[in-house]
Computed example of a mutant assay.
Amino acid sequence: MDVSEIIIPGDTPGTEWRLPVLRFKGRDPKAPRTYIQAALHAGELPGTVLLHFLCERLRQAESEGGIAGDITIVPQANPIGAAQSHFGELQGRFDLGSRTNFNRDFPLISLVDRATLIEDLDDYPATDRLKRQLLHMALAADLVLDLHCDDESLQYAYIDEAFWPEAADLAAALDMEAVLLSDGESSAFEEAVGFAWKYQVPGERQSRLPGKLSVTVELRGKRDVDPVLAKKDADGLWRFLVTRGIVSGETAAVTFSGPAVPLDNVEIVRAPAGGTVLFHRNIGERIAEGDLLMTIITRPGQPGGIDLHAPQDGLILTRTSDRLVRRRGDLMKIACDSPSSVSRKAGALEN
């Protein structure tokens, strides 16, 4: 295992950020190249501990000549966000300086322009330098996995329709409970990778990308930082690498049995008013149209409250861990068989 650091100078004197990069050299130049990163949202750590345990297996495989394809791993992809605290609370999702989501505004370029990402880096602020160097590394690979987590959540993934159903092997290996098929229309990291591949020839869009994969994996919720779960997920990711011929090994064939639905089929339940939320249903439950999902107590101690019901049948995928909620705040995502009646703009589901 080769360990190096990318140094990102800060925007103020005396400040710099260090980004550790772990590389495993493959023996077969024709095998797929893999890039995996975690904690782009700096407070989302299930992927970091997954990679900690996965690297144990990779080091053993490397010593035995069992790695076919090059593997690059960035276990904590956002040292800038990891250093941001506000009144004692980590602020790892949004850059405090620009108020931009760390997983948005990645450059949308053609693959042939990859080298331009790291040209004239001093012209950019630190957060953009970080994003450009992460994307530059990823675009050298064939398989790109961006490991995140949600709030309270099942295991699921955002996968561009250009990679489906070929990517069902990843969903099966990681025992995902759902897949959300994205439209590739945002500037999130994994969609910026897909954009570069789709427009490998500038101006000519490819709709299918066989042998390629760029995906956001949601490893349950923020509090699911657990050695048992992390080792289970590391085993699942190892199975995927075996299946794709990146590492040597044997593994039993598994199939993905969960729903795979377009983003238009995701119902996002939002708070019509602020207050204390009482959930009546949990993640992983299948609900029917009209089922009582939650009650918002807007005036504690006084009569009344707001009951929210299921807009259609579906699987509860996520819910907020907050119990004091704001007006229009996202409370729950439900994966459904039919499109939502609420129109959605192209791109990411939420900021």
Results as ranks from 00 to 15, higher is better:
1 M>A: 13
3 V>M: 12
7 I>K: 11
10 G>A: 04
13 P>G: 11
14 G>S: 10
17 W>S: 03
30 K>M: 08
32 P>E: 02
35 Y>R: 04
35 Y>H: 07
47 G>F: 00
52 H>R: 06
56 E>V: 10
67 I>V: 15
92 G>C: 12
93 R>Q: 14
94 F>M: 13
97 G>Y: 11
100 T>Y: 09
105 D>G: 09
113 D>P: 09
115 A>F: 06
124 Y>M: 04
126 A>T: 05
129 R>M: 01
129 R>C: 00
131 K>C: 00
132 R>K: 02
137 M>F: 08
150 D>C: 05
151 D>F: 09
156 Y>P: 01
157 A>N: 06
157 A>V: 05
158 Y>I: 06
165 P>L: 11
166 E>A: 13
170 L>A: 07
190 E>P: 00
192 A>P: 01
192 A>I: 01
201 V>D: 10
223 R>G: 14
230 A>T: 01
234 A>H: 00
235 D>V: 02
237 L>A: 08
242 V>G: 06
243 T>V: 10
246 I>V: 15
247 V>L: 10
252 A>H: 06
253 A>L: 07
256 F>M: 08
269 V>W: 04
298 T>Q: 08
311 P>A: 12
311 P>H: 10
313 D>V: 04
314 G>K: 08
323 R>S: 13
326 R>A: 14
326 R>Y: 10
329 G>R: 08
334 I>H: 03
338 S>D: 14
339 P>E: 02
340 S>Y: 05
342 V>S: 13
346 A>P: 12
349 L>V: 07
350 E>V: 09
350 E>H: 13
350 E>M: 10
